[in-house]
Design a protein around this nucleic acid. Structure first.
Lengths: 224, 224
DNA sequence: CGAATTAGTCACTGAATAGGACTAATGTCA
DNA sequence: TGACATTAGTCCTATTCAGTGACTAATTCG
C-alpha cells in the first residue's frame, strides 16, 4: 500500500457546496480557464494517502479559502452516467458555507442560485439533485440551518433560514417554542440593531444534551 | 469506455444484509472455503458495465437465492482502513431480508445476531457499524420494519418488529392509532390462529398517497 | 412626540399522544 | 362444559403539544 502514497486514486471526489444567497439556496460551480462556458461542481482525484473526508475538506478549502462549517458524504455515484474524467466512480459530498462568506475571486468559481443552474455533466447533475434532496431530508437530523448561518445570528434570521429550506412560512411563536424545547441555541450578550425596529438578541448554536426525548413512533414520516 | 465492458472495477461492493432472527437483528456473513474462521460481509468487484445498484442486487441474489426486499446504498468507505482486497474504496449497501427466509445452505454463508459478531476486517467493521446506525435513523423515513417482515403479517408482528428496531416497548393502542393515521397497511381477508388466543387478521404493506402531511417543525429530532 | 417597524411573549384552542381499561375470540385444562 | 389464560382489537380520558391571533417592548423615522 505505502508505495501508492501520494499517487492519484482512480475515483473522484465531487463537492456540492451550498450557501444562502439573496434568499435562495446557491451552489458553488467552477469552470476551467480553457472552457469558459462549461461549469461543473468542484472535483478532484484524491491521493491514496488521504481519507475521503480529508480529501473533500482539502478540495473545499482550495475552492473557498475557508473550511466549510459542515461537510458530509452523500453517496457514491457510478454506472452509465459518466464523469468528465476517465474515472470509474465519484463520491459526492455536501458542504454548507455560512451566508455572507465572501465569494471566491478570480472568475473560476461562482455561486449559482438553484433556480438558475447552467448545464452540468450528467453525473454531476445527478449528484447535485441527490444533494438537494438529501439536504431537505437531513434538515431534521442535522443542524443544516445553523451551518448556513454565521456563528452568531438572530432568531429571525434562523427562522428565515428554516423558511427558505422548508419552502414555507413559519409562525414565530411556534418556531420559538420548538426551539426552546430543543435546547439548541444559547443567547449571547450582544444585540444587533438592524435599521428600524427593536434590536434583536444574538444567539449561537450550542446544542445541549437532553435525556433521550421520549417521542412516539412517527409512522407519518414514511415516504409513500 | 466500451472496451472496459465486463472488466472488473478497482472498487468493491460490500453488503450488509439484515434479517430478524430469534427476536434479534442479524447480519449475513460469509467465509471462504480456505479460511474457515475469517468471516466477512459479502463483497465483490463489480464489472464496469453494471451500475452500483445492479451489482449490489446481483451479489445479494448470489448469496441468498432471493432478491432483498430493499437495497439501498449506504456510503463509500476509503482511507486508512484497508479492505482485504487491494482496492481503493468500497461502496457499502444495506439490504433487508424478510424474517423467515430460509438461510443459505452450504456453510459458506450464515446469519449472525448483532450481539454475537465475530472479528471482521476493519473497513467492513466500519461499514457494518454505520449500516446499523443508518438503519435506526432511516427507520422513520423508509419502510424498514415492513421489509423485514413477510408480505403478509399481523399487526402484533409489525409492532414487535418496531419494538426490536427501537429497542423499547410500544403501547398497542398508540401504535395502531399512528398506523391508522399513516395509511400504510391494508387488511387482507386472511386470519391466522397462533396457538391460543384470538386469531389475528393479516395485513399487507400498501402505502397510500396522502396530502403532504402538514407537520410542524421538528427541531427536537436534531441529534445533539 | 406619534407612527411605523421589528423583536419577543402570552394565552387560547384544537389536535395528537400515552396509557389504562375495556370487549372479542380463541385454546387449555379441570 | 365451563372457568380461565391468552392474544387481538377498541374505546375513553387526561395530558401534552402545535397553530394562531393578540399582546408588549424597543427602536428608527419624520
Amino acid at each position: 500500500m505505502s508505495e501508492r502514497r501520494g499517487r492519484k486514486a482512480p475515483h473522484t471526489i465531487d463537492l456540492a457546496l451550498f450557501t444562502a444567497l439573496r434568499n435562495q439556496l446557491a451552489v458553488l460551480l467552477w469552470r476551467t480557464p480553457e472552457e469558459r462556458e462549461r461549469w461543473a461542481l468542484p472535483w478532484e482525484h484524491p491521493t491514496f494517502d488521504e481519507t475521503l473526508e480529508s480529501a473533500a475538506g482539502r478540495i473545499a478549502t482550495e475552492a473557498l479559502g475557508t473550511t466549510p462549517g459542515w461537510l458530509e458524504q452523500l453517496a457514491a455515484f457510478g454506472g452509465e452516467k459518466r464523469h468528465q474524467s476517465e474515472n470509474d466512480i465519484s463520491v459526492g459530498f455536501i458542504g454548507l458555507i455560512p451566508a455572507g462568506t465572501p465569494p471566491p475571486v478570480g472568475g473560476a468559481y461562482a455561486w449559482f442560485p438553484l433556480g438558475e443552474l447552467p448545464m452540468l455533466p450528467p453525473r454531476q447533475r445527478a449528484i447535485l439533485d441527490e444533494a438537494i434532496a438529501a439536504l431537505r431530508v437531513r434538515m431534521d437530523q442535522s443542524p443544516v440551518a445553523f451551518k448556513l448561518l454565521p456563528p452568531a445570528f438572530t432568531l429571525s434570521e434562523l427562522q428565515h433560514m428554516y423558511e427558505l429550506l422548508l419552502g414555507k412560512r413559519l409562525h414565530k411563536a411556534s418556531f420559538r417554542r420548538a426551539l426552546q424545547a430543543a435546547w439548541l441555541v444559547e443567547p449571547t450578550d450582544e444585540w444587533r440593531s438592524e435599521g428600524r425596529g427593536r434590536p434583536a438578541q444574538l444567539f449561537r448554536y450550542a446544542p445541549r444534551k437532553r435525556r433521550p426525548t421520549q417521542r412516539g413512533i412517527r409512522l407519518d414520516l414514511l415516504i409513500s
